[in-house]
């Protein structure tokens, strides 16, 4: 089929693309000028990676390319070719959440949750690099991410709590473990 384009964009040809997305080898055929965010969302199935502004201002689309936080809306997909890409879906270990995922829910780091994937991947890279960041380091790490709900304070709380989990080696529960028993039995004093 003939490809129609906005006048300023050249017609794109298809190119092969492969990368390791969340530890899984992915091989696709993409348009040569495709943006990484589009490839991740529309072709690689990572709908957790969010589109907020398309111009690198909100940080919702952050992903890790070879462990480094990048704005996928400003990255040509081809730049990620051959790399290891981590999105929010790649942070948890099965049903065991990453500490920062766990603490985001517990400390109020997430309200509407739309900016959350971006924050989580950026913070996971920070904690990987530096498991005990101080306030200035936390602020520097997330300065490129906008959150409209939390005012950031509970996000910073979440990072501190995650840092505690990492340093204490506390186990993260399996979310599939049995929940409350409706018939718990009764033991008298």
């Amino acid at each position: 089929m003939v490809q129609f384009r906005l006048p300023m964009l050249p017609a794109a040809g298809e190119v092969p693309w492969s990368a390791v997305v969340n530890d899984e080898e992915v091989s696709l055929s993409i348009e040569s000028n495709a943006i990484l965010l589009d490839v991740l969302r529309d072709q690689a199935g990572s709908l957790g990676t969010k589109r907020g502004c398309d111009m690198g201002t909100c940080g919702c689309c952050s992903v890790l390319i070879d462990g480094v936080p990048r704005l996928s809306c400003l990255t040509l997909a081809q730049e990620g070719s051959g790399c290891s890409i981590t999105t929010v879906e790649g942070l948890a270990d099965g049903h065991h959440l990453h500490p920062i995922q766990q603490t985001f829910t517990e400390c109020g780091g997430s309200q509407c949750g739309f900016c959350t994937p971006g924050f989580l991947v950026v913070i996971s890279a920070l904690l990987e690099d530096n498991p005990t960041p101080d306030d200035a380091e936390i602020k520097a790490a997330i300065e490129g991410n906008l959150c409209r709900c939390t005012g950031y304070q509970q996000i910073v709380d979440s990072v501190r709590a995650a840092s505690n989990i990492l340093t204490s080696g506390e186990a993260i529960e399996d979310s599939t473990a049995a929940k409350s028993d409706p018939d718990p039995g009764y033991v008298a004093d």
Binding site: S46, L47, G48, T49, T87, V88, E89, L91, A92, L97, Q101, Q102, F104, T105, S110, Q111, C112, G113, T116, P117, L120, S175
Partner: peptide, 10 residues
Amino acid sequence: LVDGRWKVTG
């Protein structure tokens, strides 16, 4: 939040 886990896992 009861729906928090959906949000943090994408």
